[in-house]
Amino acid sequence: MRRITLLLLIGALIATGTLFAAGTREAATDPSGRERRLVIYASHPTDMVDFYVERFKQRYGDIEVELITGGTGELLSRVQAERGRPQGDIMWGGGSHTGGSAPDLFLPYDSPALEGISPAFHDPKGFNAPFDAFTMVIVYNKNLVPENEVPRRWADLTDPKWRGRIVHANPAASSSSYAAMVTWLEIGGWDLVEALARNQIIAESSSAPFTQVGQGENPIGIAYEEGAFRWVPSGNVGIVYPEDGVALLPGGLFLMRNSPNPNNAKLFADFLLEQEQQEALARNFPGRRPTHRNVDLDPAMTQVDQLNVIEYPVDAASANRAEYLARWREIMIRTR
């Protein structure tokens, strides 16, 4: 009888022990300073992330790459929750200000590869490795929006005829949609933000606007450039760079503070800023803007000099994030 009890207890101990052991990680380094592993938190669409992870593995076959994907907000919450014992090495996604606004979570990194990157995209605080840049655009379905009604400016989207027909992601959940909100704030203050919000359907994912417009479920969406371009081959969607102003936003790539594999994290950041990878970006991912000074833009995209680029208030946007989102929530409460 007691033997059975003992056996069961031992069994239970072994089982829990194994489970815990599976959860711990080793951080062995080889002589070249490289660790064995690299843990990437990425909020970009999986096809692009997988593409670059694959290329990275081809070059550094000995590094075991682990990918953790999710929404930007979700991943940042996770980084925040894990700050006592960071699990990841690099955060790939979110706005360029993310690192500078959370210096307790991320490390500044002066990559040697920044040499090749246009100065316009450099992070003044030195945290970001600006791998790409994007603008927020209006995407519309050509079958649902007649040519003469196509909105040209953000302000056109306040017209009551679009009530409940414009898809926009929740700024609290999506960093790109937050950037769009700050852009409107710069152009027309909270009045414009509220007038726009009144007409919007709020989705919980930044892919929803271009997906729904592409499918023809809704006529108009507010989307990041690359997402909108995904539907161009269907022939159904049109893309508008609003004339009242667009912000040019570098994408975020940050090294996590106290991460288990810091050297590999640097390696990955350097890798993505290389001219070769930047060219691959322009070639394989229409709608993405490379940041390297020697790499040309996809010809289908509008060149920067033809856009009405406004100065994006990077510092204010990150410093006032909580306050702005609270304002947004108040607007939601008022308009819903």
């Binding site: 907000g73 979700e74 940042l76 919450s77 609290a172 959940a173 819903r336």
Partner: peptide, 17 residues
């Protein structure tokens, strides 16, 4: 909007809250 969706979005999206 329903309660369950609100639980989810409030929980996974609050950065720093």
């Amino acid at each position: 909007r329903v309660l369950a969706t609100l639980v989810y979005t409030e929980f996974v999206n609050e950065f720093g809250g």
